[in-house]
Simulated scan of single mutants.
Amino acid sequence: MYEPIRTKSVHSTMAGTPDDFPHRSREEELDIQLAGHLAALLAVTDELRVSAPSADLDAAAERLGEQVARLRGGRTPARAPAATTGREPDPAALHGRAHALAGRALVVAASRADTAAAILAAERMDAHTAALRPRTLAPH
């Protein structure tokens, strides 16, 4: 009912020996992951800067850009101005997304033992947690 396989597998003949194609080290893979998380966090930070400008967000964006450039061998991250979609962005949703991205960056930075990136990610997590915390009214 089934026809037997007559040819060799392409997987064994295409690659040949394991040294025939480039491999990245674990450190290189972690650098790529960390740069990606920080670049995504930078994009959300830029969106927040448009909706609610602040010196803290400006400083954070600058530091995030520096870290991404360091991890990418000096290449600065691409940054596009936030486009207006006709609706106002939800700051709480942006802070929530930024908090999650900072958490992912923190995990990778800790795995990579990158102190500077871990500190920055932890600071951003704290800042976004504070932004999500409900404001309490002072007693009259």
Rank of each mutant, 00 (worst) to 15 (best):
E3I: 09
P4R: 12
I5E: 12
I5F: 12
I5Q: 13
R6I: 12
S9H: 11
S9M: 09
V10I: 15
V10C: 05
V10S: 11
H11A: 11
S12G: 01
S12P: 00
M14W: 14
G16V: 09
G16P: 06
T17R: 15
D20W: 07
D20K: 06
D20F: 08
D20L: 09
P22Q: 15
R24G: 00
R24D: 05
R26M: 10
E28F: 06
E28L: 07
E28R: 11
E29Q: 10
E29T: 08
L30G: 00
L30K: 02
I32M: 10
L34Y: 03
G36H: 04
L38I: 02
A40F: 02
L41Q: 00
L41K: 00
L41G: 01
A43I: 00
A43E: 07
A43W: 00
D46Q: 11
D46Y: 02
E47M: 09
R49F: 00
V50K: 10
A52I: 06
A52C: 04
P53K: 02
S54C: 10
D56F: 01
L57Y: 06
L57A: 03
L64G: 00
L64P: 02
L64A: 04
E66W: 01
Q67F: 01
Q67Y: 03
Q67H: 13
A69Y: 11
L71I: 14
G73K: 07
T76G: 04
T76P: 01
T76Y: 01
P77R: 08
A78V: 15
R79S: 11
A83F: 09
A83K: 13
T84L: 07
R87I: 09
E88I: 12
E88K: 10
P89T: 07
D90Y: 10
P91L: 15
A92T: 08
A93D: 09
A93E: 13
H95M: 03
H95N: 11
G96E: 08
G96D: 10
G96W: 07
G96A: 08
A100K: 10
L101H: 03
G103N: 14
G103W: 13
A105N: 02
A105I: 04
V107T: 15
V108K: 03
A109V: 04
S111E: 15
S111C: 01
A116T: 15
A116Y: 12
A117H: 11
A121R: 09
A122C: 04
A122W: 04
E123V: 06
R124F: 11
R124W: 13
